[in-house]
Nucleic acid binder design. Structure first.
Lengths: 347, 347
DNA sequence: AAGAATTTTTGGATCGTTCCAAAATAAATT
DNA sequence: AATTTATTTTGGAACGATCCAAAAATTCTT
């Protein structure tokens, strides 16, 4: 409408002050007289002024763009979507905006988006790295002094903060729970063995068995894709064993659902004699039938925590790398039933 | 390390050319001699130059920030996460980055994030609006000449392009399918009646009944929240009717899953005599047991389409509002079984 | 070899903001 | 009234890139 966009100078002219004064108002400086502040604000509203943060960022040597980058390996997965939502929540209320990019586990794409984000001058980066990410991939950005927090998965050797859930503690709790219900033939199913998360969850499972005095059985560890389909596939293998398990600790909830599906297709109802425990506590876990007993990670809370960690580092100016692990807890619902052997079912 | 960041001037000095030449190289101009271009590129790499897109955008009157805004009402919902992923795909490969913000159906928050995005100079906006959004909420940004595309839900009266799936056609197909299987008592369950999407899907359902010569029954339309829990709730109401339905067309897949849960808890196995059809075709629909017959919307494809539409408008410079509806198709899987009354089940 | 035509390079000026040092104004003190 | 002190306001000069018109270097003509 009015040629070009409205700038501080237009405001200044219309309000009868200098551009410097307008700038002062913009930053909420206490130096400016209340009356003029009010006048300037009115004029800004009237002319429909919109702040040009790019120009501001350009000038300010020290200050930041108020943009944070969020890179996620698989937004299609509810867990990571929740993570992003958690980040978004605190980032938004701190007056930042988030760049969000999905890498679909593709490291090249990941590098591209990080580069692109840097061109836009992000003040910090939260990344749930693609599977094959190495410390080298993050070197450029960390060396530029931009605070980086890895979430969910960490990148060994990278000079940045990390936030991972206490995976081993989780599966250990899961095993103990199953043991307390009387189970002894407990399998660990699902997940890709070459990831650190798999390794840690498996370790917790092993420890759980050991502390219960149960001998470890090679055949009870069944890898598969970390999806519902993977769960179906894995449980069908498990049930073909000469001594099939009576319970499974699953790599994650998606796998656990698949396990339930697979059990049902064999005429076994999960939660009645057969115990299933998941990992992640995704939203559907509560609503499923039977409701899934699982290890709660609360990805949204994790996202919030990651964002807080990052913002703290941005504000501090100095990025001291911290490694934080977030606690995890067993949520008992219905998928492990009343114990094993099956006790009386109530109506 | 080196004091401050590396700028074109540093490059120019180090390469023995003027900053203008460096700028030309940056834009891939054909005016510059191949030899010097190579030299400049080498120096840029050596000094670890990163382009400052903010500065560039400031100067260029015409050009754009290469940022697009993406505002989503509920990223926690897999459907919208898929939508965002679709947008991200084409946006990324067009060399843009996306700001992504979640509004959690909160219009105030939505307005804040839009304002914030404008300050950052987005070149365009894709929005899946919060439920209570009105044309007024989008007035400021559309009037500023920024191309806007609404996706999934549209905002009546807003001067922007819109992309919605053909909801009525979808439920109509669903009803026809159920009718062809022999069903006559078909309910429509789930969803909030005050939304346009609900209205359209309901309309398709009505039309479907009508063209099959089935009388409409008030009691067979059962609203509920558009979630799994809502589905459980709605089906339990439906089953209490004196003449309970033998099939349901569900507002969306989440509701459909809830319906399946609810049926099972009453000892009815979905797909064996009782037909369930969903809407959306979320990722889990295929993997569920029984696999869900549903209307496929392919949110990711929709996201891609929305992004293409937006980019076209950004490139055209002029934002001619278009209303696009994307086709929808019935995906027959297992949740309607072999027909009604139940035919022979194969092993 | 001189001029014309072409290719390549180049200094300001500029985008919209913030910073700085200094000026203008108002209030308080002698 | 003349200072001193505190409060407000203000013009340039940045920030890092792009644009423009014009200069410099190169190649082509005759």
């Amino acid at each position: 409408m009015t040629k070009g966009r409205v700038t501080v100078i237009d405001i200044a002219k219309a309000a009868g002050v200098s551009k410097s004064t307008v700038s002062l108002v913009l930053q909420g400086s206490p130096l400016v007289n209340e009356a003029t502040r009010a006048k300037v604000n009115v004029v800004m509203r009237e002319l429909g002024y919109v702040y040009n943060r790019g120009a501001a960022t350009l000038r300010q040597t020290t200050a930041k763009s108020r943009i944070i980058g969020m890179v996620v390996n698989d937004l299609t997965n509810g867990f990571f979507a929740e993570l992003a939502v958690g980040v978004d929540m605190v980032v938004q209320s701190a007056g930042f905006v988030q760049f969000l990019a999905n890498t679909a586990e593709n490291v090249d794409r990941q590098q591209e988006v990080i580069a692109s984000m840097r061109e836009h001058g992000i003040s910090g980066l939260i990344i749930s790295p693609a599977r094959a990410t190495t410390a080298l991939d993050l070197k450029a950005i960390t060396e530029a002094g931009i605070p980086v927090v890895t979430a969910v998965r960490n990148v060994p050797g990278a000079k940045c903060s990390s936030l991972v859930s206490d995976n081993a503690a989780g599966t250990l709790q899961a095993v103990s729970h199953l043991v307390s219900l009387g189970h002894r033939r407990i399998a660990f199913v699902g997940g890709y063995p070459d990831t650190m998360v798999f390794e840690e969850r498996l370790r917790g499972y092993m420890e759980g068995l050991k502390s219960a005095g149960i001998a470890r059985q090679e055949a009870y560890v069944i890898a598969s894709s970390a999806s519902r389909a993977g769960g179906v596939e894995a449980i069908s293998k498990a049930l073909k064993l000469s001594e099939p398990p009576t319970a499974t600790v699953c790599f994650n909830d998606a796998v656990a659902f698949g396990v339930c599906d697979g059990l049902r297709s064999q005429g076994i109802e999960p939660g009645r004699g057969f115990g299933v425990v998941g990992f992640d506590d995704v939203i559907e876990a509560k609503a499923a039938v039977p409701a899934l007993t699982t290890i709660s990670v609360d990805p949204q809370a994790m996202g919030r925590k990651a964002a807080q960690l990052l913002l703290r580092q941005i504000n501090a100016g100095k990025a001291e790398a911290e490694a934080v692990t977030t606690a995890v807890r067993l949520v008992v619902r219905e998928s492990c039933g009343q114990g094993f052997p099956a006790r009386a079912e109530t109506a």
